[in-house]
Design a protein around this nucleic acid. Sequence first.
DNA 1: TCGCCGATGTTCT
DNA 2: GAACATCGGCGAT
Length: 181
Amino acid sequence: MTSNDLSFLNKGSLIAAPQLLGWRLYHVVEGQRVGGMIIETEAYTQSDAASHSYRGRTPRTDVMFGPAGHLYVYFTYGMHHCMNIVTGEDGIGDAVLIRAILPDEGLETMRPRRNNPPEANLANGPGKLCQALGVTLADNGKSVLGPEFVLLPPLVKVSKPIASPRIGITKAVDRLWRFTI
DNA sequence: TCGCCGATGTTCT
DNA sequence: GAACATCGGCGAT
């Protein structure tokens, strides 16, 4: 496949989660791109007890059961948003949680949203990432193929992903479905 | 540097 | 009523 081919998103979260590392995710507002390189992801599948899709299709998880390449955004702990990219064949309930990015465009937009933290803390967590990019429930279901969100291929060769246990879950904690570079 | 804890609202049992 | 794919502040090492 070519370097900017996103067809791997159709292959399911276990394939897509490590492969998304190095790709650049941007939220586009009024022509300005805000975002950066994906450096941490987690895979979730319908048969996975830690996944929101585990108990079947509900109003909240409806997008997860739709076609790949759309955003599944949810609100948690009463104050944070988290964003996923839906993966796999239409209807299977797979998604990849985007846990962290390395910002490279729109830094001046992100900083005040995050209350001017140290550079390293701008988007190094799923809640922080959504705050920095301005992602809310209003973005649930939108496509990463544009125009409001874009996913661009890596600019540099990406090192081999490191697999480790997922963060903040209590079910299926032994699965090494968290991927970092 | 580590670990505990409160904030805060939606979803599930 | 409890759990939750989290974060930042605080006090103890």
